[in-house]
Amino acid sequence: MKHQTLDQLSIVADVHAEPTDLIATRSQRLERWAKLLEQNPDRRLEALTGTEHKLPEIREKMRHDDSPLAVAFEDTILRAQGLRDDTYGEAKRFFELTDWQLHEIVCHCHVGATIRARWAASRVRAVMSERLGFIAWLRGTFAH
């Protein structure tokens, strides 16, 4: 493999370098995820079923091809920042979420089998501002 500078590559290819340091914090990663969801607000995404009832080792591996988590994983910037896949456990790690916070975003018990992308984005934003409410706070505090 021959290594070339960006200037050398731009002669033979259309190179777009996006700054990845702009999403270094948890809130910046969550903001990017919300914006990605808002790009197609009426997109119907698959919810994950019963996240709160699964054993932790099963819950960590939960995923769906067209879920809000898949939308995040489709993004090259988030993948460059370290998002490894579109599983529940990886989203929990990467976005620094509790089980109850992620449950509020992706679980079917709130919306049924599918979630509109705009709804998922609003839930991501609620997590960012910690507006999930008192009950969600209690769950997150005492559920372990």
Rank of each mutant, 00 (worst) to 15 (best):
R26N: 00
I115F: 07
P56F: 10
S122M: 08
V124R: 07
L132R: 12
A13F: 13
E74I: 01
Q8P: 03
G50L: 06
Q101H: 14
E31L: 12
L36A: 03
A117K: 03
H110N: 07
P68A: 08
V71D: 00
R116W: 02
H53S: 15
A13D: 10
L97M: 06
V106E: 10
R84W: 09
L36E: 09
F94V: 08
Y88N: 02
R93L: 06
T76C: 14
M128A: 08
W33L: 14
A117D: 04
T20M: 14
S129Q: 08
D99I: 09
L97V: 04
K92N: 03
Q81I: 02
Q101F: 07
R63P: 07
V127D: 07
E96I: 00
I58V: 12
A91T: 05
L69A: 03
V71W: 02
T20I: 15
H103E: 06
L138Q: 12
E96L: 04
L6H: 12
D7K: 09
P56T: 05
T141P: 02
R84H: 08
F95M: 04
V124I: 12
P68S: 01
R29M: 04
E104I: 12
G89E: 05
E52H: 14
K35T: 06
D7Q: 09
D99Y: 09
T51N: 08
W119R: 15
Y88V: 07
S27N: 14
R32A: 03
P41A: 05
E130W: 05
R44K: 11
R79C: 09
L37G: 00
Q101T: 02
K92H: 03
V111E: 14
M62T: 05
L48D: 03
A17W: 05
D7M: 12
L6T: 13
E90G: 06
W119Y: 15
S67F: 06
E96N: 06
W119G: 03
V106W: 07
A34W: 11
L69V: 05
L9E: 11
R139W: 12
L6D: 12
R44T: 11
E96F: 08
L9A: 10
E57Q: 08
L97E: 01
D14E: 06
L55T: 01
D14P: 00
L132D: 13
N40Y: 10
D86I: 11
D65S: 13
S122Y: 14
W100N: 11
W100T: 10
R63V: 06
Y88W: 15
W33R: 12
P56M: 05
T51H: 00
A13M: 14
E130C: 03
T25D: 03
P68L: 06
D99E: 15
R131C: 09
D21W: 04
P68H: 11
V12N: 14
F95R: 03
R29N: 00
D7G: 11
E130M: 13
P56G: 00
K2Y: 09
M62D: 01
D85H: 07
L138N: 13
I23R: 12
T87D: 02
L48T: 04
S67Y: 04
L83C: 08
A113K: 13
V71M: 11
P56L: 02
D42P: 00
T25G: 00
Q81V: 11
W100L: 10
R63C: 11
R139A: 12
H16G: 05
R84L: 13
H64E: 14
A17C: 08
A80N: 09
S67A: 03
V71P: 00
G133C: 02
